[in-house]
Design a protein around this nucleic acid. Sequence first.
DNA 1: TTGACGTATGCTGATATGGGAATACGATGG
DNA 2: CCATCGTATTCCCATATCAGCATACGTCAA
Lengths: 116, 116
Amino acid sequence: MAGMARAATTSDAFNAIAEPQRREILGLLRAGERAVTDVARELGISQPGASKHLRVLREVGLVRVRGDGKQRLYGLDARGLRPIHEWVGGFERYWNESFDRLDAYVQDLKQTRQEE
Amino acid sequence: MAGMARAATTSDAFNAIAEPQRREILGLLRAGERAVTDVARELGISQPGASKHLRVLREVGLVRVRGDGKQRLYGLDARGLRPIHEWVGGFERYWNESFDRLDAYVQDLKQTRQEE
DNA sequence: TTGACGTATGCTGATATGGGAATACGATGG
DNA sequence: CCATCGTATTCCCATATCAGCATACGTCAA
């Protein structure tokens, strides 16, 4: 076996939210549960498209399903976003530094302390 | 033109951090600048591999380069992570809710108010 | 059961992606 | 200029991904 497009956990939450439409879906579901057709309509995508994206989101646990008659209601389960938030948050002290005209030595000093 | 693997901005910060090794690189660079070879060695990947990942990170602006003799020192530029942090943070109030045994109606009520 | 609706899956085509290996490029030192 | 070291790029392969389309599946109503 040779190359793998995106090594390790090929389908984790990081990957799921790398897709703009999936991010839109998650944002939409904050307002409450939605049937597949509704998701498709409100986002202007096809029904199979919505269904597939929802499948990915479900497989990584960002979304739950609930049968409601003929419909399948998808609801947000944001718990999987927390690790992402924490990982990115680990860089919080760095993104306020102005790197624009900053050489490496100064940068090394700054990461020791200095907040703003 | 038909299908595109990952629609809109095919290379944004969301995509860049979807790769585990690239996340490792970013984490490594928090400790300071690194030459390509050092990144490769410390992460146990090949030099071309490191170079390619660093290229992606540079193209989305999460990393800056600086020539240092024969070497090319890569440094972290975390500013591009801020939008991600904010987007994910928009779900913060949802991931503490216990969805485990919660039906949709209750969920709809909760999103109106209730904090914890 | 049959039809209708809602949803999931399968297929295809185009493209993106990552790894490995080889190699080209760039800068420095002699 | 030449050798060397550090880095970037290219080629190839295998795989993953997404969109569009068609179609299968599941549920409910009559």
